[in-house]
Design a protein around this nucleic acid. Structure first.
Ligand code: FES
Ligand code: FES
Lengths: 146, 146
DNA sequence: AATACACGTAACCCGTCTTGTTACAGAAAG
DNA sequence: CTTTCTGTAACAAGACGGGTTACGTGTATT
């Protein structure tokens, strides 16, 4: 359990639901992700709150897409899972007294802020549908050579 | 203990040694960082291995700079502490079978790689001396208004 | 109504990683 | 020889993502 994989997993699920099965239970999804149904529900709760997916209880229930993949960006999904911290490094304390430490943290935060801005910009500019198309292309390539 | 603060701390120490006391014991450094002497030795061991600082044992020993701050970049320090992981998010597994997951991870890694490149580029282009100068400027400003 | 199915959520444990702490060995100066 | 340092190993603490169990709730089937 090193790095937070929730974003990756949720993207996978969204595309899976769009391309394979419009409706899927937590258990099915958990199996394909190699994890647990509770983890799936826990993570997808965020997506539901934002209205990207819809869930129904009881017999025949499960999860289904509530929006087109073209209307969901990586940033949307990132936000939906709670916008977890992006970086594993950072300053030591929030409000350091020492002026040197303030200068250090300012420079460090500058660089981190730049990288974060770039990363989130990329997230904003890519839709889940874009990734699905990548898959389509890769799949076509795959079958073409077979 | 949220984010790895070793980089920030080591930068602080380097500038402290250059501007205040050329020689300092682990205990002194630990006190100014608000931590423990063993943690200081542990972290600074990397800087010593790279030849940025020098340590001497026994009575009157301690740490001192072995290179000018102008010759040490943030990237150097980052490398010296072991180049810890920069990001807290990432793909779930290394070699996914599912082509969708591969497409997801490819896009994700693309964005992360871009951000990492930018961040390390910034680290490379800033020397510890640059930060020390920031401090000088801030300090002058501070006393000027007093 | 009873049952099976599936989500919702809380509670708990586990693995990993940084950080803090204790303990002890070795080296250098007084 | 004692004091003052570093060098390391070993271990505990705290945080966090992730896995698991348990139980409640809603819904379709019988
Ligand atoms: S398992 Fe369905 S898309 Fe990967
Ligand atoms: S304590 Fe010496 S520079 Fe911050």
């Amino acid at each position: 359990m090193r790095r937070d994989s929730r974003l990756s997993r949720m993207l996978h699920v969204l595309i899976h639901m769009d391309r394979h099965y419009k409706r899927a239970t937590s258990d099915t999804i958990a199996q394909m992700l190699g994890t647990n149904a509770v983890v799936v529900r826990r993570t997808m709760a965020g997506l539901r709150k934002q209205g990207y997916v819809h869930s129904e209880q009881g017999h025949g229930g499960g999860w289904e897409l509530a929006r087109a993949l073209t209307d969901i960006s990586l940033f949307d999904v990132y936000q939906a899972i709670g916008a977890p911290p992006l970086f594993a490094i950072g300053p030591s304390v929030e409000q350091p007294e020492c002026l040197v430490e303030q200068a250090v943290d300012a420079r460090l935060n500058d660089a981190l802020q730049e990288a974060e801005t770039l990363l989130l910009e990329r997230f904003r500019s890519v839709t889940v549908a874009d990734i699905a198309q990548d898959f389509d292309a890769c799949f076509a390539e795959h079958t073409h050579h077979a």
